[in-house]
Amino acid sequence: MGRKATVSAMETTKLHIIETAENLFRQIGYAKTTVTDIAKTLGMSQANIYRYFPSKASINEAICDRLVHHIESQCWESLVRDGSSTDRLKRFILEYHRTVKDNIIKEKRLYDMVSVAMDEHWSVIQGHSDRIEDLMRIIIEQGISSGEFRAVNSSKMAKAVHESLAVFVYPSLLEHGINDEKNGNGQDSLEEELGQLLDLILHGLSSAST
């Protein structure tokens, strides 16, 4: 009983550290937030913070992991509704784009960290990419089984589709698109451009196109 209580207390403290750091990242940005700031806000010593996280980088990764899991849960909800594999893949990709876009607008300082995580190949980003591609692979395989999609290597196709979406889901690239959209430079909106890419992807997957 005592061990369970100790483990629970440690997990609670870790969560408080993560939540406090995340709030500071929102206020002043993750690059400017120090372990000293986190410790001071919590009324703890830096040494105590390091009992739970070996470095600031490990705190960054824990927060980044929370952010990408939030994105995934939003995308997952789009798959709950019924529909053809074409409908489900389209909904999934649109929700993926919208979730990242909305959070960049609302939480720019936090998503600056996601951009760095992608540039520096943090392990949490690789895990996120693998999970997104796995969900798309499942949808593609269901479409192949139903005869809606032509026979393809589902894993390679899911990876190719995911990589083709970079400008619509990669925070640093997407931010440029958001700024262009705000400035009204006469180009199609981001979602219109994504719709055109989706038409191309879905046409290429369709069994009717073979």
Rank of each mutant, 00 (worst) to 15 (best):
Y30E: 04
N60Y: 15
G2W: 03
H69I: 01
E191G: 04
G195S: 15
Q27E: 14
E133Y: 02
I18W: 02
T36D: 15
V169Q: 05
V100M: 12
N153F: 02
E191N: 07
I63W: 06
V152N: 10
Y170E: 14
T12H: 10
L205P: 00
V167H: 08
R131I: 05
E19G: 00
I38E: 01
W122T: 01
D65C: 00
R131S: 09
R131P: 01
R131H: 10
S172Q: 11
I93A: 07
T6D: 12
G184C: 06
S146N: 08
R137S: 05
M136V: 01
S189E: 06
S206G: 02
T12I: 08
D180E: 14
S206I: 02
D188H: 14
A9P: 01
W76M: 11
Q196G: 02
R26L: 09
R109V: 03
K108V: 06
S78P: 03
T34K: 11
E141F: 01
L198D: 00
N183A: 15
Q27Y: 01
I104S: 05
S189G: 04
G83I: 08
L89S: 06
I17Y: 05
K101H: 09
S55L: 14
N103V: 00
K159L: 09
I105E: 15
G43F: 11
T12E: 13
P54I: 10
A117N: 06
Y52D: 07
S154Q: 11
M44P: 01
D134G: 09
V161P: 02
T34E: 12
L197R: 07
L67N: 03
V68E: 04
H121T: 03
I201R: 00
S145V: 12
E72S: 10
G2F: 04
M10E: 14
Y111D: 09
I144S: 00
N185H: 08
I132Q: 08
M1N: 03
E193L: 14
E133I: 11
I201M: 02
L135N: 08
H203D: 04
N153S: 12
P54L: 07
E77S: 13
Q126A: 13
Y30A: 11
I140E: 02
V169S: 05
V161R: 05
S85V: 03
I28Y: 06
Y50D: 14
H176Q: 13
M1P: 04
